[in-house]
Design a protein around this nucleic acid. Structure first.
Lengths: 343, 343
DNA sequence: TGTCCACCCGATAACGATTGCGTAAAAAAA
DNA sequence: TTTTTTTACGCAATCGTTATCGGGTGGACA
């Protein structure tokens, strides 16, 4: 069972012309007479002719498709980014091939091999939390594959990057907690190696210092799997509360972790924000409906996807290599709700 | 800037063989001697040769990619379905091209044209809420494009379909509300024309009849845009509560609507479930964290995606057309929580 | 010694589209 | 009228791969 479309050859045969003439007529070449052009166009229109993109790809050595690798599409932040990516890509006639790493390095390597073998023209990627070795990306980049990083970027590879101002986002959230009277603010972060965690940690620490709140390293914890693994999150939280001097607020470093921590606190019957306040990064549309309504740091995910795609297409469509790469930093927004109410 | 890969011709030149021999050696043809095969394989391995999928597509007249059309990927239900689709597709070497209709008929038509022009081998689609004319789908189907419908199916087109048992799901939810003492149960549903809404409505009505609760048509309302348009939802809810005999429970017909109704009730300071109970279809992972924790009808989204993909690949890879189409009905699960607690 | 048949391998065409080059006929210039 | 130019189109190569066909070499057998 196959789906057969009309080809340029069919038109040529039907009209008693050569394929070259038909091709040129459709591309409005000056070498073709007006009558022939009209004839061909009318026939093509009538039979709903569409050039075969695969044949074009083969000839032009470009597939007009871009690969996207994220950890999880069932995560508001990333699905909003993908919406941004698609909004640009479709307008520009590009195809988007999405794959998920599920935060696994192994899966990321497989995805990349797959995408490379599908001859994508460029790659948009937010690396998995497990990824500490970047050879798979370097090798593709060295071979000339245009890459743009977003959110979780790789500093060692020189290309465009689009990131959130993690440091300022974390700073604002922490300051907000301090100003609301919280003193022992824990920071549960994603994988320590990650670029993101480092930025968020620095903002957190700076906020404490600026407000003369002592930094307690025991209040800083990491989840290698970024909350995907609830058991891991539970272990870290247990450890946090096993200490003598317990935290009075938690600042969570990712969407999944924010929800996981909320689940943890509720399961332990802790009152939020009376016993413990909670602020976290989250792009959930429904943070206001939670119990309690959650104070979140919201990221401009859609814009991030748009910007990254624009940059990628610029590289793909550049005539000559341009090594003048940019790093775009987008601001985040603190949305204050019940979970961080004044003590 | 282009990304050049090694071809069979390169191998042939390097080894002093013809392209035919290299091709056959790599495909393990019996016509090639063991020594030559080893030679070719070693060279291919060393230089990381990957057959060019575009050239293969052109030759085989198949792109090994399938199109997926959903309304919104930022919806847990659909992103879980997509995970199911990908889990099968990747294993079988198929590429998944996702596009979103955003519940717009116009956008759906554009998406479909786009996908068809990208020469997909098959299509998985859950039609938009706005879609009442199916000519665009029929025409593709008539041309021989394999299609499998999931969730929101089109009865008039004869092909495989994978659906939820909407009727039983709605029945169970309604019975649950009745058994918990609720008598005036409103049903806010998605677009009236839709297959889904009809199934859910019938289950709702049957539950009422079976328990001798009178059916009040004034308690049944529809949102054409399925909750995507909050203002519309608000109008319907306002109308519902403007009646003399107000409802004491609401049964919501989709994920987005469930969240929208919760937002509406909370903004009107109505106490759930004391003043009004709420049960809705939802695949959100965080329904337990909401205020109140939500009783939901959860659908086996991942399995739905898997099943639909398996069926589609069966059609695509069939040697001869098989008109023996199946309609798979998957069960839903009622997860009882606070929002529907006994009166 | 001649015939036949495996065994291996190469040349070629095809998939659909574009494009450089060649060329017949018509038009313009001489 | 002859020469040159222009117009309008066809031929063939190309992209990477595979299938079809055809052919050369060597051994087995009569």
């Amino acid at each position: 069972m196959r789906f057969e479309a009309i080809t340029i050859k069919d038109i040529a045969t039907a009209l008693g012309l050569s394929t070259s003439t038909v091709s040129r007529a459709l591309r409005d070449s000056h070498e073709i007479s007006v009558e022939t052009k009209n004839l061909v166009r009318a026939y093509a229109e009538e039979h709903n002719y569409r050039p075969n993109p695969i044949a074009l790809s083969l000839k032009e050595k470009r597939s007009r498709s871009i690969g996207v690798v994220v950890c999880e599409i069932a995560n508001s932040f990333f699905s909003q980014i993908i919406n941004g990516i698609e909004s640009i890509a479709y307008d520009r006639g590009y195809n988007v091939i999405i794959s998920q790493s599920h935060e696994s390095y192994k899966r990321e390597v497989i995805d990349l091999n797959y995408l490379a073998s599908r001859s994508i023209d460029g790659l948009l990627i937010s690396v998995s939390m497990e990824t500490t070795n970047f050879d798979h990306l370097k090798s593709l980049h060295d071979k000339g594959l245009p890459i743009v990083f977003f959110d979780r970027v790789v500093d060692e590879i020189d290309t465009h990057k689009v990131i959130i101002d993690n440091s300022t986002g974390a700073y604002n959230a922490t300051v907000h907690l301090i100003e609301n009277g919280f003193k022992r603010i824990a920071n549960i972060n994603i994988s320590e190696h990650s670029f993101i965690a480092q930025g968020r940690l620095s903002g957190y620490k700076k906020a404490l210092q600026d407000h003369n709140v002592p930094i307690d390293e025991k209040l800083i914890r990491y989840c290698e799997h970024g909350g995907q693994d609830y058991a891991e999150l539970e272990r870290e939280m247990d450890a946090l509360f096993a200490q003598k001097k317990k935290p009075d607020a938690v600042f969570a470093g990712s969407d999944t972790m924010t929800m996981g921590i909320l689940r943890y606190l509720k399961s332990r019957k802790m009152k939020i924000p009376e016993e413990i306040a909670l602020v976290g990064f989250s792009n959930s549309e429904n943070a206001d409906l939670l119990q309690p309504a959650l104070t979140v740091i919201k990221q401009p995910a859609f814009e991030m996807g748009k910007k990254a795609t624009e940059l990628l297409l610029k590289v793909i469509e550049a005539k000559r290599p341009d090594n003048d790469f940019e790093k775009f930093v987008l601001p985040s927004e603190l949305v204050v709700r019940e979970s961080s109410e004044k003590k």
